[in-house]
């Protein structure tokens, strides 16, 4: 696929599409600002934990208040599973790390910190709907934290 197989008429048509959409469906300022702000979220000290399971993709049930969703993130350094319950624009996260850890939730509000109990269990209230990522420092390996890939909760 190369650029050269677009003929001038195709280019004109796409330019027209662009002009029209720029007028009737412009990118909101909030989206532009969040794109620029994303750079400040870069965490370079932590290993990325990829999404391994997401119950929302397995069931075709419609979303409703009180529906519980479970997700699992894993990396070589550790594992993090949690369930998400919804109440309007607020999410509650209840879950378990594979060993005791200190957590920081990155979301559209101020970061929320939480500590797991000695079994790795945790509960975090007040997470705002939207992109969410958890930064997790294990107490036995504090020099090797993980951070979950961003996911819309």
């Amino acid at each position: 696929m190369s650029d050269t197989d677009l003929n001038p008429a195709d280019r004109r048509l796409l330019a027209e599409v662009r002009n029209v959409l720029t007028e009737v469906d412009p990118v909101p300022d909030t989206v532009l600002n969040s794109a620029r702000a994303a750079l400040t979220w870069l965490t370079i000290d932590a290993e990325l934990a990829a999404l391994a399971e997401d119950s929302a993709l397995e069931t075709a049930g419609t979303r409703s208040a009180g529906l519980t969703r479970s997700v699992t993130f894993e990396s070589d350094a550790g594992l993090l599973s949690f369930e998400v319950s919804e109440d309007g624009d607020v999410r509650q996260i209840v879950g378990q790390a594979d060993r005791p850890a200190d957590l920081t939730v990155r979301h559209n509000g101020d970061p929320i910190t939480a500590a797991t109990d000695e079994l790795g269990r945790f509960r975090i209230d007040g997470v705002l709907a939207g992109p969410v990522s958890l930064h997790c420092v294990f107490r036995d390996t504090p020099g090797n934290p993980i951070v979950t890939s961003w996911i819309v909760l």
């Binding site: 909030t30 870069l42 965490t43 990325l48 992109p131 961003w150 819309v152």
Partner: peptide
């Protein structure tokens, strides 16, 4: 759409390295 856009940018940042 805003959530998707924001998530995509955050994913890009985490994937940059």
């Amino acid at each position: 759409a805003s959530d998707v856009a924001q998530t995509v940018w955050l994913r890009l940042v985490e994937s940059l390295p």
